[in-house]
Design a protein around this nucleic acid. Structure first.
Lengths: 357, 357
DNA sequence: TTGTATGCGTTATCAG
DNA sequence: CTGATAACGCATACAA
């Protein structure tokens, strides 16, 4: 096997200087005759530029880093998909790093990226307080960074965030429209601003209709995952609160809750309407399919990527981009049961729910 | 802001040659005195090696490529997680590429990787016939490649595959043990070898117990996804076959089927036991939770990565590594209903299923 | 043990 | 428009 051809090989074979070939490759001025000759030579040689050498010369890395707590997060999977779509059109690669692998938090990998400038920019998905150090590092290193829905206020990097308050109001409107008057809310971790905002939106939305959400009907879960929803579900259903609609701060919690509801024979939505936030694909598959206020997650991925690449090319001002969340009404919400019937004790009858996922 | 220090900066500051610094950095022979001096200088300079230049010099890329149809595939997400875990211990990055973005098949990105040798090796997840061209390219380019559960026979690259036949037999044993005698099977696409093998294992497993799986009870779905399972479910339930156990060729199909079962009021597992293959996390959340024969997906990711890195360091013989799949018995399978009752028409009674996800 | 010189494959600068 | 030549930052024979 002969060696891989380099720009020098091409130059020799064509009888010109490497710099000429380089200019040709980068679309600069070359005489039409040479242009033809070169593309011919390159063709028969099967030559292609060295990515590494090119980047070394250009002083860039040719790839961006995408950082997330866990790449198994279904929300992140959607975001990543959007990032990939945008990247597909550019000559830039994607490097992935999970902060939490095998249960341990290990930001070292990403610190290395930043310190060694192994990437041209960073996308931080759902960063939290513990990522402050990384962000600080990135800012100091003047590394273009965009944070996607960080659960805290960030000033020094590009930020994509959601109108969680409006989202809360949206679900309030939907449920009130269906006829509900007695609500409960299950939030995420106490320190979560997103959770607070969704609650606030819900509360304000209800208040606008003259409905109150009692403090005793507001709960919080220590995690954002399905298991936490399940745990919450047990204590919630044991409490037998007189509510007809339960809003959970995200879809994962809602999905976990619905499992318990099934176990306990609580019929959703006939006895209790359930709604979440985020718009995870799993919500469409669940039974009943989950009503949710969905993020334009994939679109956010695209925008995050575009914004990052723009910032890399031209480090301009820091921007904040806000996205709205939209109601996706599915099977888990319906009109409340006629008053006077205990919800958890309601007998389960075979009745078909017509709407589709 | 001062310029980023390079190995030259360090050398000058320490009053030695760059090669000495280089040797120090790579843990080769340097006098203890210098060793101390150098690490001191490096410390106060905040120096770190250039990843790009190092790789250029070493003639490698410093990253491996991971290729999949869609990074949204939940199975792949697990595999990726395993790959990341293994990679976390090495000084190597991960580049991701989805072949099918926005509905279009675009292998060009990966062809570029191979042609330009932008990666040191390739992991192909679930490759199919249409990936032949890519594999051919990789083999020609002598690019170390490992294919994870390709749905076809591959000779020229490292392969991780599953004992799908044994998996089929496993689910057969489980269901026969529960008392089932009348079965149906829904396969994936007709050309799929995996699907054929799972069917064959099921068939042989049943035959071993003197049970026959009639050809009329064997179906196939055009896709491997939830939607296909839903579509299949409608025609299957319309047919009202006298079976008590349905095995679907993967979890996605099974999940899709279960949705239809819910819609139609068919009680799983009381009227019909349902089982899948793969062991997706979604199966544990579903109601009822899905009995499945699970792949050690994350472990396969780790092994794939390790195998690839080994092959990169030392291009040895081509190996095939086989993994077994293990039964995860959950709520969707149970003893068959007492004979003499039509299944699809069975009334739905409130009865609790005890087992947990 | 340390230093010198050269190579890795490109791009950019500045003559011609 | 084209050609030499110097970076880019590091690794590695080979010489000292």
């Amino acid at each position: 096997m002969t060696k891989k051809p380099t720009i020098t090989t091409v130059a020799e074979r064509a009888g010109v200087a490497v710099s000429t070939v380089s200019r040709f490759l980068n679309g600069r001025y070359v005489s039409p005759a040479l242009r033809a000759r070169l593309s011919e030579v390159i063709g028969e040689l099967g030559y292609s530029r060295s990515w590494t050498a090119r980047n070394l010369s250009l002083g860039r890395r040719g790839s961006i880093g995408v950082v997330v707590d866990s790449s198994e997060d279904p929300w992140f999977v959607l975001l990543l998909s959007g990032i990939e779509e945008e990247l597909a059109t550019r000559d830039c690669s994607l490097m992935l790093a999970s902060l939490e692998l095998g249960g341990r938090y290990e930001p070292a990998r990403v610190s290395d990226w930043i310190r060694d400038r192994r990437v041209d920019g960073l996308i931080l998905a759902k960063s939290q307080r513990r990522e402050r150090a990384l962000i600080h590092l990135a800012v100091e290193a003047h590394l273009p960074t965009v944070a996607v829905v960080p659960d805290e206020a960030l000033q020094e990097v590009q930020v994509l965030h959601l109108d969680n308050i409006e989202a809360g109001a949206t679900i309030a409107r939907h449920l009130v429209e269906l006829g509900h008057t007695r609500f409960a809310f299950a939030g995420g971790p106490d320190h979560s601003i997103d959770s607070k905002h969704r609650l606030r939106g819900l509360r304000e939305g209800l208040a606008a209709q003259g409905i109150e959400l009692p403090a005793a009907h507001v709960f919080s879960c220590p995690q954002w995952d399905v298991a936490a929803g399940t745990t919450f579900g047990r204590t919630f259903l044991d409490a037998r609160l007189p509510v007809t609609a339960l809003v959970l701060a995200n879809d994962a919690l809602a999905l976990g809750f619905m499992r318990v509801a099934h176990e306990r024979g609580v019929r959703v939505p006939q006895s209790l309407s359930v709604a979440g936030f985020d718009g995870l694909p799993a919500g469409a598959i669940a039974w009943p399919s989950l009503t949710t206020v969905a993020q334009p997650t994939r679109e956010m991925g695209r925008v995050a990527c575009r914004r990052l690449l723009d910032t890399i090319d031209d480090p301009g001002r820091i921007e904040r981009i806000q996205f709205r969340m939209d109601l996706v009404a599915r099977e888990s919400t319906a009109a409340p049961p006629p008053p006077g019937r205990g919800k958890a004790a309601a007998p389960r009858r075979p009745k078909r729910v017509g709407r589709q996922a």
